[in-house]
């Protein structure tokens, strides 16, 4: 089903909501994404497709030009940027080297859903017990601050506005729709 802003749906306890989100292994989302970095300012549509551990992602700008595409399966990731194909074990590092900007890709399939992985600290929760911020230390040693400003107004309350910040990069995500 496609989750657009709706106000129906059962009210879940924080624990029930967390369990349901953790069980969510297959989902698709379409988001507006903006990445501001010292090197450049990039924005466009992000499409993310998750199947268990594997995911495919692509970002396209408003003119229809592909900014990047990513395919991760069985732990290895293929990254395509500016018409060139790369195989990466650390895609965050590789994207930074290729484009001058990056985002915490290793845990992205978790933080997109509003979950903090094992590398998270300084977790903050709102009155409804939903995770609204945490700090992430990725395996390259970059520290990221993840913040959820808005959730979809249904029982599952998946994230709608996410901001991810490190010293050099400021990423804004406005999720337009979830397909579960």
């Amino acid at each position: 089903c496609s989750i657009k802003p709706q106000t129906d749906g059962p009210i879940l306890s924080a624990k029930q909501r967390l369990e349901r989100i953790e069980q969510l292994q297959h989902f698709e989302l379409t988001a507006t994404m903006g990445i501001r970095s010292p090197a450049d300012n990039v924005s466009g549509s992000l499409h993310w497709q998750q199947q268990g551990e594997d995911y495919q992602a692509r970002m396209t700008n408003f003119l229809g030009i592909r900014i990047f595409s990513l395919a991760s399966s069985a732990g290895s990731t293929r990254l395509q940027v500016q018409g060139e194909d790369y195989q990466a074990s650390n895609s965050t590092e590789l994207m930074l080297a290729l484009t001058g900007w990056s985002l915490p890709l290793d845990d992205m399939s978790l933080w997109l859903k509003g979950l903090a992985g094992d590398n998270a600290s300084a977790k903050e929760y709102d009155a409804l017990g939903r995770l609204i911020a945490f700090e992430l230390l990725d395996r390259s040693g970059y520290r990221w601050q993840v913040r959820y400003q808005r959730f979809f107004p249904d029982g599952l309350a998946l994230p709608r506005n996410i901001e991810v910040q490190s010293d050099d990069f400021h990423i804004k995500l406005v999720i337009r729709s979830w397909q579960l």
Binding site: T60, L63, G64, I65, R66, S69, Q80, Q82, G83
Partner: peptide, 11 residues
């Protein structure tokens, strides 16, 4: 029509 380096076409 815009054809990008990846062969993606925007019409």
């Amino acid at each position: 029509q815009v054809l990008d380096l990846n062969g993606q076409r925007s019409i």
